[in-house]
Design a protein around this nucleic acid. Structure first.
Lengths: 300, 300
DNA sequence: GATTGTATAATAATCTCCAATAAAACAATC
DNA sequence: GATTGTTTTATTGGAGATTATTATACAATC
């Protein structure tokens, strides 16, 4: 979907950075084009384009007839991630959802009304609408026009979302196919320790907080070895990005859930999955309460 | 999606038949255009077109300057449902999945290879591919081409699908928002009784059997009042249409699951949701076993 | 001989214009 | 005055050509 011009170049550049970090490459390392291409699964053409981008940013240098060479040490790349420029479509998606949640657009609307109102081209429009439809937020009416689905009522959906997660997440630990990945667990633990020990958690962007939270739950779902569970959790996270954004400013709650996550991580690591399951249940119940009060505040 | 030419006319005709049946209209009844249009949520134009279709089939008659009048009694319409002609895309979708399951096409393939092989136009092709992607069966590769996801391994997925359903379906009954619709229950009961008492169940098309089964599970999920549960079940049913098609020929098993469904319906009707939940669990475990043996047979 | 540089071919996305469909307005009929 | 018949207008879908992107083949360089 939505691979609008040039975006892919940025994504690829990031993947190359991942490779550099994972392989702990040092300055001066020769980045062979074909090798990278094979690793990522594309041809040399787009790899070159991405390397050019990295060269522009001074991360690699290019020597005529010799190719690209790393300039910076792998660990200095930790945070310079090349920001993937967000597409018009992503912004438009979020804007539509927010405008609907705050009742600035009617429940039922035609495509071209939206086009006029938001001044987007028809391609981005139809693509965004089908993404919204995929995500279960809107549905095409019979005949012309679209209407928003009740999912987009934040109070009801918040509850429903947690009820759904309370059903699937705790039981995912108890599946016979459950199999944790020690490496992933360790990375996740470090990330949480970093957050929890951070002197002033309020300075961490709420996006980053949210992504950590989401990644934790997706990791657990991955472990259970059942694609349907992880698919469902990914879907819930996409939704939560829209519904729960407000809840990520309470720094006391952030420390709390970090600790809850860490406790679950411990249980998984020690192999006590029944305990992990119970802890997950308690964590979700706690999180629902927090999200509900956050919602009330933002409403008043 | 996929509202290719004329399809809508058939769908609308069916909806009008639904209205006639639900309202128990008798021959001679005047079918007012605007009224139907409001009921269905479209304008008069497509309603007229659908009524014309019904007129062609002799179900309604048209009197100049007076409009359309019902010719047949509502209960005679029970089975003459106007068959919605299946689109090229639906068939193409199923064909692709089957060909992949039976390893007739490689795991990784470009759009235009498919286009050449199956001789479909570009629009249907991209639409079918994005439907497959939505359903989690294929994913776009970086660069050109698509690859099939492991979901399409029938043995693994069958188990995973039932594990997932075993987690959500029984608990859906226990949600505080659970609220059955007596009318829907009654219709479902009749449909099952019809099947079970059918002298020779083998003559009923397996599509029809499957749809009855799917409709039952979707109905239960609807009742729980949580859109995420019903969405998940709908998704599972779409998948099952592809994976379990073989299992619908064993007429003994069909009678069995009919009885299991009926027992659950009884429990719901009598308000004993805990019992319904337990029965659903047992039913799904039973169904998994049946599907697995069916799969083994079709494999040998 | 492995790797980069460059050209060419294949593939997929986008844009424009036109046709099909649906909505809305209005006239005609009972 | 309600309902159908007819026309007009708006909206959406679709085919073809164009452009951007990716894959591939091959020459040049070290």
């Amino acid at each position: 979907m939505a691979r609008s011009t040039q975006q892919n170049r940025f994504r690829l550049a990031n993947q190359i950075l991942d490779v550099i970090r994972d392989a702990r490459l040092e300055p001066g390392h020769h980045l062979r084009e074909q090798q990278l291409a094979d690793l990522v699964g594309v041809s040399r053409t787009p790899i070159r384009s991405a390397l050019d981008l990295l060269a522009e940013r001074g991360i690699v240098e290019t020597r005529k007839n010799h190719g690209f060479f790393l300039r910076k040490p792998f660990d200095s790349l930790h945070r310079i991630e090349i920001a993937v420029p967000s597409t018009i479509e992503d912004e438009f998606y979020a804007r539509l959802v927010r405008d609907r949640l705050e009742n600035r657009i009617p429940n039922s609307i035609t495509q071209s009304e939206i086009a006029r109102r938001y001044k987007v081209d028809r391609v981005s429009l139809t693509r965004t609408l089908s993404r919204l439809a995929e995500d279960g937020l809107i549905a095409r009416k019979q005949g012309h026009g679209w209407s928003f689905l009740p999912t987009l009522d934040s109070v009801v959906s918040l509850r429903a979302s947690y009820e759904f997660r309370l059903t699937i997440e705790p039981s995912s630990f108890l599946l016979p196919t459950f199999k944790p990945d020690p490496g992933a667990i360790e990375r996740m633990r470090l990330q949480h320790l970093y957050l929890i020990s951070h002197p002033d958690i309020a300075t961490v962007s709420s996006t980053q907080l949210f992504e950590t939270d989401a990644a934790f739950h997706e990791m657990c779902a991955e472990f259970c070895g059942n694609a349907f569970f992880s698919q469902a959790i990914q879907y819930q996270n996409r939704l939560r990005r829209l519904l729960e954004f407000g809840s990520y400013f309470d720094s006391r709650r952030v420390r709390e859930w970090c600790r809850e996550h860490l406790a679950i991580i411990e249980s998984i690591a020690s192999g006590d999955l029944a305990q992990a399951s119970g802890q997950m249940r308690a964590h979700l119940e706690q999180a629902l309460r927090a999200a509900q009060t956050a919602q009330q505040h933002s409403r008043s």
